[in-house]
Each structure stands twice: as structure tokens, then as C-alpha cells.
């Protein structure tokens, strides 16, 4: 009979300490490298927007005008890709999970002015062209900055993109753009 085959193991479990803990009175020890939540070191951030552009779920929003960096914790999947692309290495993974919340809102971090604004300005300027293709791929959305110069180069990029498509698709995209 196989009834007592596991007897030793089951009998042994009677004298061992339980495998589970009495949550929430006790909590399990969290390893140092746990993927808890994304933390920003606001002092080092230059608002370049690399994290915003590279996040696969689109949960980070960088607003240069308002000097804010915000993250929607409900959308973040803790993949850590933003950490690897940040040029200033100011993002990090905190081993504690983000607390539960009853409202769906983004965490907004105010980014203070940098000590060397000149340098920050420069990085922003070089980053601009990289931003345009994204606007082109995305669903039609209202352009954030309505500067005519920027708008014009954006149109050029769009044109270049459309030229790569086949005729039927290109016609559709043009129609959609005209409607906007």
C-alpha cells in the first residue's frame, strides 16, 4: 500500500517550522535585488525623456515645460528597461513593492533646476530629432508643442516615413492626417 510512502516527509513536517508566514503580521524577507518599484533621483535627472520614449508600456511621462517626471505605477511592469537607457543613471529599482492604492493616479516627481542649465539645454536639443519618429508612429495625437519650426521638421519626417510605405497604405495615412 502506498499510504505510508510519504509518511516520513509528512511526519517530519510536523516538527519543522511552517513554510508560510502569518501575513500581514509577518512578512517575508525581501532580497536586495527584488523588482519592487522604479525610483527616480530627481536631482540627477535632466528630463531628456529617454525613459519616456523607451518604456514599452508607456507609463513614464516626462514634461520638460512643467519640469515633472511622472510614472503610472499601475502600468509599470518592472522590466527595468528604463534604468538601462537612462543616460544619467538616475533611475533605480527599489526592492519594496509600490503600496496599494484606491485611486488610479500617476506618481509625479518635481525635477529641480539643474546647477548647470547650459549643459541640460544642450542634451535636450540633441534629443529632439529622436523624438519625432515616435510622434509619427503613434496614433494621431495632438502635438504637444505647437512651435511651427518643430511642426515643419515633423512633417518632413512624416513625409519620409510615408514614402517608405506602399501606395495604398500611404494614401490611407495621408487621408488620416488630412482629417486631423
Amino acid at each position: 500500500m502506498g499510504v505510508f510512502k510519504l509518511g516520513k516527509m509528512t511526519f517530519g513536517s510536523l516538527f519543522k517550522k511552517p513554510e508560510t508566514v502569518l501575513y500581514p503580521v509577518q512578512t517575508k524577507e525581501q532580497p536586495a535585488g527584488l523588482k519592487g518599484h522604479i525610483e527616480l533621483d530627481a536631482k540627477a535627472c535632466i528630463l531628456c525623456g529617454m525613459c519616456d520614449r523607451s518604456c514599452a508600456t508607456g507609463c513614464i511621462t516626462v514634461d520638460k515645460q512643467a519640469r515633472t517626471w511622472s510614472i503610472d505605477r499601475f502600468q509599470c511592469v518592472q522590466c527595468g528597461y528604463c534604468i538601462t537607457v537612462c543616460p544619467k543613471k538616475c533611475l533605480s529599482m527599489d526592492p519594496n513593492y509600490a503600496p496599494a492604492s484606491t485611486v488610479h493616479a500617476s506618481d509625479v516627481v518635481e525635477v529641480p533646476e539643474q546647477d548647470k542649465p547650459v549643459k541640460a539645454e544642450k542634451v535636450q536639443a540633441t534629443e529632439k530629432p529622436a523624438e519625432k519618429p515616435k510622434a509619427a508612429e503613434r496614433e494621431p495625437e495632438p502635438a504637444k508643442a505647437a512651435e511651427t519650426a518643430v511642426e515643419k521638421t515633423r512633417d518632413d519626417v512624416l513625409e519620409a516615413k510615408i514614402a517608405l510605405l506602399d501606395e495604398e497604405k500611404a494614401a490611407k495615412v495621408r487621408a488620416a492626417l488630412a482629417a486631423r
Partner: peptide
């Protein structure tokens, strides 16, 4: 969990190696 930081989804592989 100790080595990758995740229990089910690990996000530890990247193109070109591991994280």
C-alpha cells in the same frame, strides 16, 4: 527571486547577454 528579482517574470535576459 534572489538572482533575478522576479518570481515568474524575470526580465533578466537582454539582447547581447544578461542583465
Amino acid at each position: 527571486e534572489k538572482t533575478t528579482g522576479g518570481r515568474v517574470i524575470f526580465s533578466v535576459v537582454k539582447v547581447g547577454g544578461v542583465q
